[in-house]
């Protein structure tokens, strides 16, 4: 930063600033265009969706009608989907973040038999194709009669290997060995040291993992798609995708087109809001994971 700061008055610098800001602005238009489209589409009637220009509002503002349809369709199932998504992802994220933190702490601060092997196993887990895991899991859980339950979606989501890597790297930096030893000298047990000394220090890392796990679960599609077949158990992702298939196959009527976009809008607003509010955490956390990895 200081390099360019020193020359910020030169004409070359000013030309570059215009040029590069222009390049980024173009990419911003690309990034923003689909999001803007969702907004305009959600405010249109089905007829207008087809007859007016996609990237601008129709004269007829139809958002309230669309919302009404969205929340009343199939006896208000959309609200149920939202509730399911919130329920599945908050419990999964909280559990995943907590267990990742425990595991990351063990990997970062202790030496023990089997440490290398266990960490290699966790690392290798990211290479396993979803189908290789989720399909056998489905077959096993269906034998136990656990498919079509919240357990089937939540329990597998509690295993979040990226959280373990991130917490290990974070704890390595944030908590010195001497601090833990000071706790030992003071007579505190290992669990007490973790809960009364370490935990508050690793809160920023914990929060990052919590957000990342939350987003991963909010966005999860394949696991609930396989595990659940009762529509009132669906999360938004599976529900909306199904609504879309109905819309496009024409069986549910063309009516559903704008409703799907309205549903998309309603479901991404909370995540985007959460991201904007908590950006301090994910930016720092992704950095820690990325630099260390």
């Amino acid at each position: 930063m200081s390099i360019v700061g020193k020359t910020s008055t030169s004409p070359k610098f000013r030309r570059n600033r215009w040029l590069l800001t222009g390049v980024l602005s173009l990419y911003f238009l690309y990034t923003f265009m689909p999001l803007f489209y969702v907004i305009t589409a959600a405010t249109k009637s089905n007829q207008d969706l087809f007859s007016t220009f996609g990237l601008w509002f129709a004269p007829d503002f139809n958002l309230w009608d669309n919302l009404h349809t969205l929340f009343t369709i199939q006896d208000g199932i959309f609200l149920k989907w939202m509730g399911n998504t919130a329920y599945y992802s908050s419990i999964s994220a909280a559990g995943a973040a907590l267990f990742s933190t425990f595991a990351g702490y063990a990997f970062a601060k202790y030496s023990f038999l089997g440490k290398k092997l266990m960490f290699a196993l966790v690392l290798g887990a990211v290479m396993i194709p979803q189908t290789a895991l989720v399909i056998p899991m489905f077959l096993m859980l269906s034998k136990l009669g656990l498919t079509n339950t919240a357990f089937a979606v939540i329990l597998p989501s509690l295993v979040f290997p990226p959280g373990v890597f991130l917490m290990r790297a974070y704890i390595d930096d944030a908590i010195s060995n001497e601090l833990i030893e000071a706790g030992r000298m003071d007579g505190a047990g290992e669990v007490h040291i973790f809960s009364s000394i370490a935990f508050r220090l690793l809160m920023p890392g914990f929060t990052t993992v919590l957000i990342l796990a939350f987003v991963a679960n909010w966005n999860n599609y394949f696991l609930p798609l396989v595990m659940l077949n009762k529509p009132d158990m669906f999360p938004i992702t599976v529900g909306l995708a199904q609504l879309y298939s109905t819309a496009i196959s024409g069986t549910g009527g063309v009516l559903l087109f704008t409703v799907v976009m309205t549903g998309a809008l309603v479901s991404i607003v909370p995540v985007i809001a959460a991201f904007l509010i908590m950006q301090r955490f994910w930016q720092g956390g992704l950095g820690a994971g990325g630099v260390k990895a």
Binding site: P34, L35, Y37, V215, W218, N219, Y221, L240, M261, I268
Partner: peptide, 14 residues
Amino acid sequence: AVPAVIATLIWSYL
């Protein structure tokens, strides 16, 4: 932050 499902839906409209 946008679920892959929803991103795909939006783009398929586009």
